[in-house]
Write a protein that binds this DNA or RNA. Structure first.
Lengths: 189, 189
DNA sequence: TTATTTAACTAACAACTGTTAGTTAGTAAG
DNA sequence: CTTACTAACTAACAGTTGTTAGTTAAATAA
């Protein structure tokens, strides 16, 4: 486990503050205060407030994209692909709760990287929808509108960051299984 | 249909901006510009920026509370209660998409009214959970942890505001039915 | 030892923030 | 006609914002 750089620490601390108050309401002085330094000192490590947001959001979005690619090309059925997607969200959300909050709530404050983020997200959603459509075609899933299905499942998964921290004792494997049960039995014919 | 007062117009316009950028990122000058007046003129109608946020969030939260009370005391089964809750969310969300965004994303910027809001929300969640527990006891629902069930359903319903506007042609009754099907068949034994 | 890098600091700036004070033109009520 | 109200305006203020410039002490490399 390699030790955290000062830059990584700033990003981690900032993400926590962004989750609590949102990007716009968090000042560079807030971030600095959380690290017991002055705001100007942050600029020895990062270029701008915007850079912090980009670091948080883009790296997470790229992780989702990379792993979706793996799931997509694996030779398994739609139900099993969906189970892997659920596990993916549980894992990334629990690893980076604060980052997931920014990903969900602060992406609209991206500047240069906004369009790149939107492309990653819409590619992800398209892959998701294709899995559902494929599952309907093969008879694995009921024939409800895939849009509504995807919305229902994906919003639940995207909100995991709000919910995981509340249960200290939670078992992540168990959570994935319970979620699969609840989310999929409404789809599984 | 009584005509909108200037104050109501400010609140409506502000809610739209709050949805796009979040409460903190929207300035009084932004709101004013959207109405083609100057920021200072807003203060002829409202007392503060904070008052606008309170008007948006509290009135919506109270509508949910009122209607949950009705559902709670009606003499129907858990499944039917859940269907009514789903319909309630679809209806209130479609009536006030921008307000729902603030309710979900900007409640943490409430000041005096924050604790009142939190009480309304946790009462609502408790009522919701009791309906689920009752349904499990009576055998209507499968015996999965009610916390996970509630999280899954409620986060989907709370995100409706993100999704409804995308489909202009959507039929709200049909949406409620599709959602009931998807959300409940994973629960319905 | 000397030179370089790292990471903190103080001080400041120009732009922007919510809000107030005081004013004014148009409309409605007496 | 006069009065009062509505709803806009200009000007301003005190505080906050992200960021830069220049400096300094400590740690590391030569």
């Amino acid at each position: 486990m390699k030790t955290e750089t000062r830059k990584e620490e700033i990003i981690r601390v900032a993400a926590k503050l962004f989750k609590e108050k949102g990007y716009s309401a968090v000042t560079m002085r807030d971030i600095a205060k959380s690290m017991d330094i002055k705001a100007a000192s942050l600029y020895n490590h990062i270029n701008s407030k915007q850079d912090i947001l980009e670091a948080i959001i883009i790296s997470l979005a790229e992780q989702f994209t990379t792993e979706m690619l793996e799931i997509k090309k694996s030779e398994i059925g739609a139900i099993d692909k969906l189970k892997q997607i659920i596990t993916l969200h549980v894992r990334l959300s629990s690893q980076n709760i604060y980052g997931m909050a920014s990903l969900n709530n602060d992406w609209m404050h991206l500047e240069e990287q906004m369009s790149y983020y939107i492309k990653l997200r819409s590619d992800y959603e398209n892959d998701f929808k294709h899995i559902l459509e494929e599952g309907i075609r093969s008879g694995e899933l009921i024939a409800v509108k895939p849009d509504v299905m995807m919305f229902s499942i994906l919003t639940t998964l995207r909100s995991l960051y709000l919910w995981i921290p509340k249960k200290e004792d939670i078992n992540l494997g168990e959570l994935s299984e319970n979620l699969s049960l609840i989310l999929l039995n409404g789809i599984n014919k």
